[in-house]
């Protein structure tokens, strides 16, 4: 289910803040746009529209993403860092909402790790009672995601298979590659 997010007037100048694998960012600054690029990783975009604060994490569960081992602990920790970061900036737990992106099957020798990353995020939100207002998970294409954290607006651009820099960026935790001039991947979808 995809629900439109409330739109607010765009600040005159936006500042892009890229969230790399294993990291998270939280902000209440309306001119900041959180960005990331995802293959089999998942990004959780979470916000409290009343408090005007939001954030994003970007994780890849280690191992085979089983439900009780290291991967579960890693995933819960990634989520907790984001939730706690939001609460520390004035968000209310009961007002938190989320959107999920990623979990694609883009590297064949990684098995279905993308699916398991996505399933973990969905299960976490369900168990913690955090509504998921929109999601784009799975498939076989990488995503470039933008998230406006104070309003909950999000957009994604599906990338084509020639964007190998997406995967090298994810695996090396380098900053994102530059915006493609001609993404050949279609239009931006808003969530």
């Amino acid at each position: 289910m995809i629900a439109p997010a409330p739109h607010s007037p765009q600040p005159a100048r936006e500042r892009m803040l890229h969230v790399v694998q294993g990291e998270f960012a939280v902000t209440s600054e309306p001119d900041v746009v959180l960005t990331t690029i995802l293959g089999s990783c998942v990004a959780t975009c979470m916000w409290d529209a009343v408090a005007g604060v939001g954030g994003m994490n970007h994780y890849l569960l280690p191992g085979d993403a089983d439900s009780s081992g290291d991967s579960m602990r890693y995933g819960v920790n990634a989520m907790e860092l984001l939730v706690n970061g939001l609460l520390q900036k004035g968000a209310s737990r009961r007002r938190l909402q989320a959107k999920l992106f990623g979990g694609a099957h883009v590297v064949h020798n990684l098995g279905d790790v993308g699916v398991k990353n996505a399933e973990f995020a969905q299960r976490f939100l369900r168990l913690e009672g955090i509504p998921c207002l929109g999601q784009s998970l799975g498939g076989d294409r990488a995503r470039r995601v933008r998230f406006w954290p104070t309003t909950g607006r999000a957009g994604q651009l599906l990338l084509d298979s020639t964007h190998q820099e997406v995967f090298s960026s994810e695996s090396s935790r380098r900053p994102a590659p530059a915006e493609p001039h001609n993404p050949a991947a279609g239009s931006v979808e808003l969530f």
Binding site: S68, M72, R73, V76, M79, E80, F124, L127, E128
Partner: peptide
């Protein structure tokens, strides 16, 4: 802990 999932992990 305020997170149900974290409580479950610690209990486990």
């Amino acid at each position: 802990d305020d997170q149900l999932t974290m409580r479950a992990l610690i209990r486990s």
